[in-house]
């Protein structure tokens, strides 16, 4: 599929920020499963961007503003051509051992509830276990916007029983690690069938299955990623893969606004032709 992505993030300040620094993980990498085309990254004010790659294999841009800034918008846009791999991630860019993804992070800290929840699946082979885990989380954590924040931990979300895709992913990761299965967080985009404009980027998880490698699981939707998914960044948890992490100096009253559209470029073209 050809998926067209247009994603902008705006930080506005009541009192202008003297200086802003941001770490951006907004740029997808090409792989056997996805080819990135015409990717552009733009800002509404003068800023320097330095591109690098982190140890997790993500493309990272460091952004530095040039002058006092009332409002900073970073916009990325481009096209990604995807193929369906049945959720299996091509093993062409792994720099880290899967063992690294067994560690807890504050957001995926395990507790009694997580360990009980995870223990239900221990009888099955690994792949089967992960599928059952995904289904169980899909059933136990209702999708609801506004009840959680990015600081909610997996354990808190499971107890609450509600959350957004990021929370589903954290619960999945915590449970998988509890079972001794390496798991990681993926931020990316999902081409939805019902709408182009979305409130936020998507997130899901990947688990390491011996013989297969990394396999994606989207517990928020209860399915494995298809060609409708674009992987952007991976990490130990949300923080490691967050689209934007930043700090501002002297800015007061920060507000964040996100605009995102994910469209089927082929469909659009055929409509235009028709």
């Amino acid at each position: 599929m050809r998926i067209r992505i247009d994603h902008s993030t705006t930080y506005a300040y009541d009192r202008a920020a003297r200086f802003i620094i941001q770490t951006l993980r907004l740029t997808p990498r090409s792989s056997e499963a996805q080819t990135v085309r015409d990717w552009r990254i733009e800002t509404n004010v003068d800023a320097r961007l330095r591109r690098s790659e982190d140890a997790f294999g993500n493309i990272v841009h460091a952004l530095y503003t040039e002058q006092p800034t009332q409002s900073l918008t970073v916009r990325v846009s481009g096209e990604v051509v995807t193929t369906d791999t049945a959720g299996v991630v091509p093993q062409d860019q792994e720099t880290l051992s899967p063992l690294v993804f067994l560690r807890d992070t504050p957001l995926t800290q395990r507790d009694q509830l997580i360990s009980v929840f995870a223990s239900e699946f221990s009888a099955h082979p690994a792949l089967e276990r992960m599928h059952r885990l995904m289904a169980a989380i899909h059933g136990s954590v209702a999708f609801e916007v506004g009840v959680t924040t990015p600081t909610h931990t997996a354990a808190e979300v499971l107890a609450l029983g509600r959350g957004v895709c990021q929370d589903h992913a954290h619960v999945f990761i915590a449970c998988a690690r509890q079972m001794g299965v390496p798991a990681r967080y993926v931020s990316g985009h999902l081409l939805r069938s019902d709408r182009d404009d979305q409130d936020a980027a998507h997130a899901w998880a990947e688990a390491w299955i011996d013989d297969l490698g990394w396999v994606g699981f989207d517990p928020a939707n209860g399915v494995c990623p298809t060609e409708r998914y674009v992987r952007v960044a991976t990490g130990l948890d949300y923080l490691g893969a967050a689209p934007v992490r930043g700090a501002s100096y002297g800015g007061g009253g920060e507000r964040l606004a996100v605009r995102l559209s994910v469209r089927d470029a082929d469909m659009q073209q055929s409509q235009q032709q028709a």
Binding site: D54, A55, L96, S97, V100, L102, L236
Partner: peptide, 28 residues
Amino acid sequence: AQECLKAGIVPSELVLTNPHYAPEMQGR
């Protein structure tokens, strides 16, 4: 290169799951 892990001098798991191992430094 992780030669000492490959050679089994120290168990990989002990190092790579160690909370003080910094994945951010891998390859640096």
